[in-house]
Amino acid sequence: MIRPEILEILRRWREPLLAGGALLLGLWFIALPGVGLTIVGGALSVAAVGLLIPAIRRVRLQQGQDGAGVVEITERQLTYLAAEGGGLLSLDLITDVRLADRVWHLADSAGNRIAVPADARGADALLDALLVLPGIDAGRVARALQDGGDHILWRQDPADTPALTPPA
């Protein structure tokens, strides 16, 4: 029987643990005699490191799931469902990302604004979507999540903002 606290830690770290196990298996294959096993072990080790680094980053950035509301991302559309303050935002039109007191504040080029708690259910998907913005620094995002202060994490250059044309 495993204690619930330990089980929760293992669940949270399962992806990095699996990638680390694959890395150890790859290194063991490299240590065995034979060119074939060395090649397989090298390929497995490289793939495992490629999976391990983002897995550790995701675990470090996880904020839990007990905040207000639910976040859904479907086809580059962010939907935040909450009793108060929910809304929609296109991820392709985001111009501003700020984190203040563990709440994501997002704005788009159409003038829409949305505030999403970092610990809302599904907020990890939002974090993954934001980390692909050009020039956003994952390390800075991690520090901002741990710090809990007010941080401007990303702003799009106004010259790069897509123009919204009114329907004809």
Rank of each mutant, 00 (worst) to 15 (best):
D96A: 05
R121M: 06
D124Q: 14
G111S: 04
A125P: 01
R121E: 12
R60T: 09
Q65T: 11
H105P: 01
D92K: 02
R76E: 09
D96P: 01
V70T: 15
G41P: 04
D96M: 04
L106D: 09
G111H: 00
D92S: 05
V71Y: 06
L52V: 00
G50I: 15
R58G: 09
W104I: 11
I56Q: 00
L78P: 02
T79C: 13
G87V: 05
A48E: 04
A123Q: 08
T95Q: 06
G41R: 03
L81A: 05
T74S: 11
I73L: 12
A125F: 03
I56A: 08
G36A: 15
A115S: 13
H105G: 03
V40S: 02
D66F: 14
L99A: 03
L78Q: 05
G67K: 09
Q77S: 11
V46Q: 04
L52I: 00
L88T: 06
G67S: 08
A118F: 02
R60N: 14
V71D: 07
A100V: 10
L99I: 05
L88P: 05
R60V: 13
I56Y: 02
R57L: 14
A107N: 04
G87T: 07
I94D: 01
L91T: 10
L106H: 11
R121F: 00
E72R: 14
Q65V: 11
L37S: 09
E75T: 09
R121L: 09
R121P: 01
A107K: 13
P117F: 12
G111F: 01
A107D: 06
L106M: 12
A110F: 02
G50Y: 14
R57G: 13
V116P: 15
G111K: 00
G64P: 11
L106N: 10
N112I: 01
I53L: 11
D101M: 10
V116D: 15
V116Q: 15
A82M: 10
G122N: 07
G85W: 09
T79I: 08
A118V: 08
A43P: 06
T95A: 06
A100W: 05
L44K: 07
D66V: 13
P54M: 06
R58M: 12
A48W: 04
G67I: 10
L37W: 14
L37T: 15
L61P: 00
Q62P: 00
I94R: 00
A47Q: 09
V103W: 10
V49I: 15
E72H: 14
L52R: 02
A82F: 06
A118E: 03
V71K: 09
V103Y: 05
A47S: 12
V59Q: 02
G36T: 08
G67R: 09
A110M: 03
E84W: 15
A107F: 02
